[in-house]
Amino acid sequence: MATVTSSFSFSALTQSSQRKHTLSSTCVLGSNSDGIRFRKSFLCQQVGVQASNSASKLVVRCSSSVSDPPPVSETKLNFLKEYKRPIPSIYNTVLQELIVQQHLMRFKRSYRYDPVFALGFVTVYEQLMEGYPSDEDRDAIFQTYIKALKEDPGQYREDAQKLEEWARTQSSTSLIEFSSREGEVEGALKDIAERAGGKGDFSYSRFFAIGLFRLLELGNAMEPAILEKLCAALNVDKRSVDRDLDVYRNLLSKLVQAKELLKEYADREKKKQEERAEPQKANEAITKCLGQEQFSEL
């Protein structure tokens, strides 16, 4: 029988005072002699963050332990202990490696929770797990994943939902003029802008860039000029955002291709099983008919 295998690898790279993480992945889908392979790189950049004095319900200060952060193995073990059901390898491998990289971000000594980061992570998770066999299991995996990092999955979901609902009611103009208005989401964005502008450290990552992309997507404001103005309002380097969004779009394209290939493989296997079952059904029908005929003769 043909097999489907997948392998994803995430490598970390440190440069000067910043830590960069490279996510490279290879998915091999094999059917007898057929092999299809793709690779992608996922580069996440992060710097330290300190607390800001700005108040916002959406900004939760989740600092890591400075003196004794847990090892990566403990985080992975926490996940495996809590979620004991089998996970298909194409999903499980990427989840296990992704949790390693998020562990490194989560337990930096200057780490602070960021609602835009949360929106970005939730967006990526939903994209990665789209098509998972069970919606209930997909949510349970999300819960276990975030808890393994000693954070609140409910907070991630709640903040992501608030930002999404807010973005749907915005226009391209109001999205970039958040600083002139009051509100829960506006307060969170002002806090980010203050810290990124030098009134506190700011932790930029690819998840943050994806969170911005999601806000623009929901606000129907996908013009490059709007992204540029939003980055300026948040005091974020647009070049970094552009670079990371290009990689994210490529990632989504590869995922779509992989899922299409998996579907084709599943369809082929189903067809083969049906073809193998036809002779057996025919034999059973013949046997049944012969048996009935013999019985009637008696």
Rank of each mutant, 00 (worst) to 15 (best):
V59W: 08
V59I: 12
R61C: 13
R61E: 15
C62L: 09
S63F: 11
S64C: 12
S65F: 14
S65R: 12
V66T: 08
V66G: 10
V66F: 09
P70M: 04
P70C: 10
P70E: 10
V72H: 01
E74F: 10
K76S: 13
N78H: 09
F79Q: 04
L80R: 09
E82I: 00
E82M: 04
Y83T: 06
Y83E: 05
K84R: 15
K84S: 12
K84N: 13
K84P: 03
R85V: 13
P86F: 08
I87E: 03
I87K: 06
P88G: 11
S89R: 15
Y91N: 04
V94G: 00
L95C: 07
E97Q: 08
L98G: 04
L98Y: 08
L98E: 04
I99H: 01
V100C: 11
V100E: 09
Q101Y: 00
Q101K: 00
R106L: 10
F107N: 01
F107E: 02
K108N: 12
R109I: 14
R109M: 09
S110A: 14
S110R: 10
R112M: 15
R112T: 15
D114W: 01
P115D: 11
F117Y: 10
F117L: 08
A118K: 09
A118N: 07
A118E: 07
A118Y: 10
L119R: 02
L119C: 04
G120C: 08
G120H: 04
F121V: 00
V122C: 05
T123R: 05
T123I: 02
V124M: 08
Y125F: 14
Y125W: 14
E126C: 07
E126H: 09
Q127I: 01
L128M: 11
L128K: 07
M129E: 05
E130I: 09
G131P: 02
G131I: 09
Y132F: 11
P133N: 15
P133W: 12
P133K: 13
S134C: 13
D135Y: 03
D135P: 10
E136K: 11
E136A: 09
D137M: 14
D137Q: 13
